[in-house]
């Protein structure tokens, strides 16, 4: 089952558990090259975990994660650091280096991985900061930025090396409506202009439907639906409908796995 012509990331039979609780069970996901792929699902299903698995920061219990012929979980430390140069990751919190200015944060990957002269680094940094609308903030320290601004600086840093694959972890949360619109456009534009592949993790349905080429919907450790935004809107499954329409109750539980509420209350009453 390979719906795409050119796949950059091929995940087969992935299983992963955290403190004994299974997060993924035998999951297959293909990320098409040059496209924007969204991973959606209720919070706590393991979307961030999936990105960390792709980045090789976590090792799966079973299965393969192949990027251009290299099985990431099997790579040695050095090969892993090499392949990560081709990935950019925007963390949920931004994760800027707090002891460096905005400018130095964006320049950091360039300084580490290239021997470019300072003048060229400067040009690239200003270009990337301009792209996220924060060229004027270049001398600020991360502690002087709002959450949304920090995320955009982190985006500039994630694309500093023009990676082949950019992973966005919840890029839309905490953005005001204007910045949100800008960001959606930005991700789209960057994807087209730089020709990289994007993976967006999100639970903002409207924004994601608006820019994704392909969507995986995960819940309960499985891919419950996949397809283009149009296909997904037409899927006739209670689980998918519930999520796409944002209903709290349905086949996908809103609650973290727990004992029956009544039982727990009774237990407390008894003891």
């Amino acid at each position: 089952m390979k719906p795409f012509e050119d796949v950059i990331i091929d995940i087969q039979g992935l299983s992963f558990a955290r403190s004994g609780r299974p997060i993924f069970r035998d999951v297959n996901i293909q990320i098409p090259r040059g496209k924007i792929t969204a991973i959606m699902g209720p919070s706590g299903t393991g979307k961030t975990t999936l990105l960390k698995l792709i980045g090789g920061q976590l090792k799966p219990a079973k299965g393969s994660i192949v990027m251009d012929g290299q099985n990431i979980p099997r790579l040695g430390r050095r090969e892993l650091f090499e392949i990560r140069e081709r990935m950019g990751m925007l963390f949920q919190s931004g994760a800027l280096f707090t002891d460096m200015s905005v400018y130095e944060n964006v320049a950091f990957p360039l300084r580490v991985h290239t021997d470019l002269p300072e003048q060229m680094i400067r040009d690239i940094v200003l270009m990337k900061l301009n792209a996220v609308g924060l060229r004027g903030a270049k001398d600020l320290m991360p502690s002087e930025l709002s959450g949304g601004m920090a995320r955009r600086v982190a985006l500039a840093r994630a694309i500093a090396l023009d990676p082949d694959l950019v992973m966005y972890d919840e890029p839309f949360t905490g953005q005001d409506p204007i910045a949100m619109g800008v960001l959606v456009n930005l991700i789209r534009r960057l994807n087209e202009a730089l020709g990289h592949t994007s993976i967006i993790v999100s639970h903002d349905i409207q924004e994601t439907l608006g820019i994704a080429d392909y969507i995986y919907l995960i819940a309960d450790g499985e891919v419950v639906a996949q397809g283009t935004p149009q296909e997904l809107k037409e899927v006739d499954s209670a689980k998918v409908k519930q999520f796409m329409q944002g209903l709290p109750d349905g086949p996908v539980p809103f609650h973290f796995p727990a004992a029956e509420y009544v039982d727990e209350l009774m237990q407390e009453a008894r003891s």
Binding site: G55, Q57, R84, E85, Q92, L96, F97, T98, P109
Partner: peptide, 14 residues
């Protein structure tokens, strides 16, 4: 806690 170490790893710095 602020994912700066993870972030370094993803930038390819140990």
């Amino acid at each position: 806690a602020t994912e700066q170490l993870s972030s370094l790893e993803m930038i390819g710095v140990d």
